[in-house]
Nucleic acid binder design. Structure first.
Lengths: 226, 226
DNA sequence: GCCTCCACTGACCGTTCGGTCAGCCGTCGA
DNA sequence: TCGACGGCTGACCGAACGGTCAGTGGAGGC
């Protein structure tokens, strides 16, 4: 009902294209290979999509939905900001791994040069997510739970960079003996959250108590999940 | 003398290939376009390099040198670990921007699927740099300057993620109004360093004083550069 | 029974790809 | 003066690319 009746053919093409584009990138994938993986004729691909470009655009559009929903909803939920940060990191990492094809597509297109139209699209997704994360840090600051001197945008970059790097280098991480257990998503999320919340220094300057103490900053951030 | 006498031709090809591969990736660049940019005949490219693959490998190898030197040398230098972290972030960001072609090549190859041999190569560079950064955090922990409960590897991922994300999304960052001034390398480095050192929480639990207090943890990390 | 519609196909197009090859020509040692 | 060498070239190759097109065959309205 919600899907067009004759979507089976187009759908299988879209799925095959998503998988191949995510694995090998735009240029490396031929229309013939997409058709083969979808089990249809090459000409049929051009029957459903005007060109390879347009097919790629369709793949990107279908991959762009729903990404920042969680952060925005988290922003409005009750609970301490510290908990929100923990939950956000854990969710983002788990979400990236669960939808690794879509994630790889978006990350590739956000970073690269390449197609301008598509980069705009990926950037829209990135911007929505970025803004939502910034809002969470801003909220924590307004509540007095986070220090007034922090830059929420920089904190969001820190958070995003940590999750992206984990996604990109997870299998590389597995080979490093310096990182024992760090390749486990939950472990990584917990340790990174602890660092973002408390930093590395043993005793930061005691400052900006102005607004603090009010909202019960229970920094019990060791059970971020479940 | 240090360069082979007849290296001019091969050198210009290598330079042209580096620029083009960095901008558009392996698949999008044709040998003909490399030859055109180098001002030579296409066949001449194959005279100096056995294949497009081997040319790419040569480009990657020449881009792989020198990357982790700074971190390793910083590790052995005097000064507080907090200062080292600040300097490291500032250097990495400045270094990435100064050698943006090489950086883009390495990042692309570290992340992507693609050529296995080259990924190994890029990963070697990444691993050296990663280990060096981990050592700096480990050193800070042993000195009692950093909390004993932190994971040096996680901190290194945080640091690397922040610098990578900045490099990849700098022009996108320039369009976000949430980030005022954050697209300036020095500003970004300073704010990120402050976050990694002290975190976002207003008052982390007072813990692990055991080894601290000894090495003068002057957390005056607002002038990381110059 | 027939006509229309449309998802789908095989064969084909011009172009561009990575790569080859015979040969040109300036340099240098004998 | 000559021959060998090597950097360099234009012309060319088969393969694969994105894209086109005439046509097929089954489903549905009349």
């Amino acid at each position: 009902m919600s899907s067009t009746p004759a979507a089976t053919g187009a759908r299988s093409i879209l799925d095959a294209a998503t998988a191949l584009f995510a694995d090998e990138g735009y240029e490396s994938v031929s229309v013939a290979s997409i058709a083969a993986q979808a089990g249809v004729c090459k000409a049929n691909v051009f029957h459903h999509f005007a060109s390879k470009d347009e097919l790629y655009l369709a793949v990107m559009k279908s991959a762009s939905a729903e990404h920042a929903d969680y952060a925005e909803e988290l922003y409005q939920s009750p609970g301490s900001s510290a908990d929100k940060v923990c939950k956000l990191i854990a969710f983002e990492i788990r979400n990236m791994l669960a939808n690794h094809q879509r994630t790889r597509l978006l990350l590739r297109e956000t970073n690269d040069g390449g197609h301008v139209r598509v980069r705009k699209l990926a950037r829209t997704v990135f911007q929505r997510n970025f803004t939502a994360v910034v809002n969470i840090f801003e909220q924590g600051r307004e509540r007095g739970e986070f220090r007034a001197s922090i830059d929420p945008a920089a904190a969001a970059m820190l958070l995003g960079g940590a999750t992206h790097l984990f996604f990109n280098c997870r299998d590389a991480l597995r080979e490093f003996r310096e990182a024992n257990g760090l390749e486990t998503p939950d472990v990584y999320a917990r340790r990174v959250a602890a660092l973002i919340l408390s930093g590395v220094l043993v005793a930061p300057e005691p400052q900006t108590h102005e607004l603090a103490l009010a909202h019960g900053k229970r920094a019990r951030h060791t059970e971020a999940t479940k």
